[in-house]
């Protein structure tokens, strides 16, 4: 049931908090414009780095922290398929079946959403009332796509942005090579994967790359810039919220 003005706990994600606050404010703007009340509870990280390193104890502690901070909201929304996927698909498995924490994790799971999925699937948003003059291509980040089924939602909304042309790249569903700690544990492999991704992006002729996860965006932007390619990289929320006045990811302040 959607209450008249659903109360949202915005899970900013640690990467957005540190590297790209604009994404958080874009999410805020989109949710408020769609009629939600948005709060930002005290938060650090969803615990995925620990979880994927095999440190279940730390992952569990951080999950409990998130559950406690967010369980009073109607919904938890994150501008990231990866972090939303962690909360939605993995938190319950951290706790014993039938335990109190398990139940609380499962309850949080049912009301946690990735941003574009929440806007379209839950709020029924059909129109982004903004414009963006550019040709964009969209990278499907892995967790959002495969754990949460985020595929058409961002594209449907982007399709309503005035002036925006979407050009699909080859293999948009193949991993960019970020993979959390993978990119520093296996840098050569990660580099190969992001190089392939960059080649597919270039082949579209698009001037902007969009995606829904900052991890992928930092990785791809970093590679594009190391290669000297002037393609703008932005989180999809920035475009949908019309907050594209700030420099693109990795771009110099005041533009290039």
């Amino acid at each position: 049931m959607i209450t008249a003005q659903p109360k949202i706990g915005l899970f900013v994600t640690c990467l957005v908090d540190l590297f790209r606050p604009t994404v958080g404010f874009s999410a805020l703007k989109l949710l408020e414009e769609a009629g939600c009340t948005v709060e930002v509870p005290v938060q650090t990280c969803c615990g995925q780095p620990a979880y994927n390193t095999g440190d279940r104890a730390t992952a569990r502690t951080l999950a409990q922290q998130v559950i406690t901070a967010f369980e009073s909201f109607d919904y938890v929304v994150a501008p990231s398929g990866s972090c939303a996927g962690m909360i939605k698909c993995h938190y319950p498995s951290l706790f014993e079946i039938n335990s109190g924490w398990r139940v609380r994790a499962e309850q949080l799971s049912t009301k946690t959403f990735e941003l574009t999925s929440f806007l379209t699937d839950v709020l029924g948003l059909e129109q982004a009332n903004v414009d963006y003059a550019g040709t964009v291509t969209y990278h499907d980040s892995c967790s959002g796509l495969r754990e949460l089924g985020v595929k058409t939602q961002p594209r449907r909304l982007l399709g309503t942005v005035a002036g925006l042309e979407l050009r699909e790249m080859e293999e948009s569903e193949v991993c960019c090579g970020f993979g959390g700690t993978f990119c520093v544990k296996y840098p050569e492999l990660s580099n190969r994967m992001v190089s392939d991704k960059v080649a597919h992006i270039l082949a579209t002729g698009a001037d902007t790359l969009l995606a829904g996860d900052l991890g992928c965006l930092l990785n791809i932007a970093g590679k594009l810039q190391r290669d000297g390619v002037a393609i703008k990289v932005r989180h999809v929320a920035e475009v949908l919220a019309g907050l594209t006045g700030v420099p693109a990811v990795g771009e110099a302040e005041g533009g290039e």
Binding site: N191, V194, K223, Q225, R226
Partner: peptide, 9 residues
């Protein structure tokens, strides 16, 4: 070694 690191604002 392989890519730039986009900096925070």
């Amino acid at each position: 070694a392989w890519r730039d690191l986009p900096a925070p604002p």
